[in-house]
């Protein structure tokens, strides 16, 4: 089972991103998928977490994820506020929306780090909702690129199941752009002995 944590701020669409991934993973043939928001009240701008679980078999757990296999960060200003690495298994990957390169992000420890400027991609595509660039869907493109867990085709199908066709089309454009522009720095090989 793969456990994915989505970190963002209220209003950035972490819950929807977690849902679209669950949808895409099901279309990919994973029989077990779940997605959950952080339970309780949510406030615009406050740090929020959503999760997706993906498994070949039906999932029987609804407990909160202690440490995920993948962390996707929609807002790099959360580092220092939220213990993102504390809830990520060693190795990662950690996928961050930032103009920085993985090397310049200053992540210590043995993690695969990937970065993409999802905000810039959304602005360039004029994909702006309520005055905010849409960063959740481009991060799905980055997720595909880094993990290979789901294909872009199934992200597109999932978008069509979750939103109206023109919105799905516009969002898939930024998914593809983010897929292309994601920079990945593989974790260092574990040293033995």
């Amino acid at each position: 089972m793969k456990e994915i944590l989505w970190h963002g701020r209220g209003g950035q669409g972490v819950v929807l991103a977690a849902q679209i991934l669950a949808e895409a993973a099901y279309l990919e043939g994973y029989g077990g998928v779940t997605s959950a928001p952080t339970f309780g009240p949510e406030r615009r701008g406050a740090p929020v977490v959503a999760s997706t679980r993906v498994s070949r078999n039906p999932i029987r757990t609804v407990a909160q994820i202690e440490a995920g296999d993948v962390a996707v960060v929609l807002d790099a200003s959360l580092f220092g506020m939220v213990d993102i690495l504390g809830r990520l298994r060693e190795g990662g990957p950690l996928i961050v929306n930032t103009p920085s390169s993985p090397e310049n992000l200053g992540i210590e420890g043995c993690y695969t780090v990937a970065t993409v400027d999802a905000t810039e991609i959304a602005v360039a595509s004029r994909l702006i909702v309520g005055g905010m660039p849409v960063v959740n869907t481009p991060m799905l493109g980055a997720f595909c690129r880094v993990t290979g867990l789901v294909t872009l085709d199934n992200i597109e199908r999932a978008l069509k199941r979750k939103m109206a066709s023109d919105a799905a089309g516009a969002n898939f454009t930024v998914v593809q752009a983010a897929f292309e522009k994601t920079i990945v720095r593989e974790k260092e090989k574990e040293r033995h002995g």
């Binding site: 849902q19 669950a22 099901y26 998928v33 959950a36 339970f39 309780g40 039906p58 999932i59 609804v62």
Partner: peptide, 12 residues
């Protein structure tokens, strides 16, 4: 059925 853990969790 359990609130939030089922009511707000998506699954097939």
């Amino acid at each position: 059925y359990d609130g939030f853990v089922l009511s707000h969790t998506m699954m097939p």
